[in-house]
Design a protein around this nucleic acid. Sequence first.
DNA 1: CATTACCTGCAA
DNA 2: TTGCAGGTAATG
Length: 277
Amino acid sequence: MPELPEVETIRRTLEPAITGRIITGLRTGSFPGVLGSTPAEVVAREISGRTITSVQRRGKFLVIHLNGDLAFVVHLRMTGRLVLRDRLAPPERFEHLAIELDIGLDVRFADQRKFGRVLLLDRAGLGQLECQLGAEPLDPEFTAGKFADLLRGRQGKIKSVLLDQRLIAGIGNIYADEALFRAGIHPERRASSLFQDEVERLHGAIQSVLREGLVNRGTTFSSYRDGWGEPGTNQANLGVYGRGRRGEPCPCCGASLRCVVVSGRSSHFCPHCQPAP
DNA sequence: CATTACCTGCAA
DNA sequence: TTGCAGGTAATG
């Protein structure tokens, strides 16, 4: 579900609604492990009375800053959701956590598969997170030249590089396949084998698929919802993702799309537009 | 690098 | 009933 466009869409829906609000309480459900190893009572005591000062995103992480150098760091993994609900609204399906705000609103975390986490971190914890993450692909500093530097000398497959959060933070399986398709590059090409024009095309394709995903408020196949619980519409904008398994026609040339496993992930591509290495 | 584990629901 | 899922950490 949640790659950069989805997490950023959630951030944009939450930010105006919860910035400046005071946390009044915390509720956990049947899976307190959502908070990591910190007991819920400890988290509740630490955050109660604190003000939400900003809502940021870094890669696929959502960061809810509180006054006094603490922050909730949320990772949705595959099926996590973060939604705003009235205090009196019935629990979400698979709800594991509710952060209660002073205006009668809850920030609720729900996750069918229990992979996602909501961690309370201090300044040191945020520093560790930051140093594990690579470039922000939509940041103006992420130029084609910087991208080329990342690829230089890398023997791994280009798709693995795109998915490696230590190199570029925020791309997942959907947008990786879409960017490679748009750039006409096979997912199993070696990163260092790309020619300069291919690097530039792929750089542009990464930015355009992410920007379009944002404009369309994310891709919803099943579980993804924005901060108000609404689905995105970018699924209608995809060229190859999810279509290789049934051999659907390439939207560009009509060839039968294919699906192979690359770095453990299903990878959809057009054998004609993206020639094998 | 490739495989497995973490979980659960859903489509084939 | 089996296999698969938008992610990542751990393991061989």
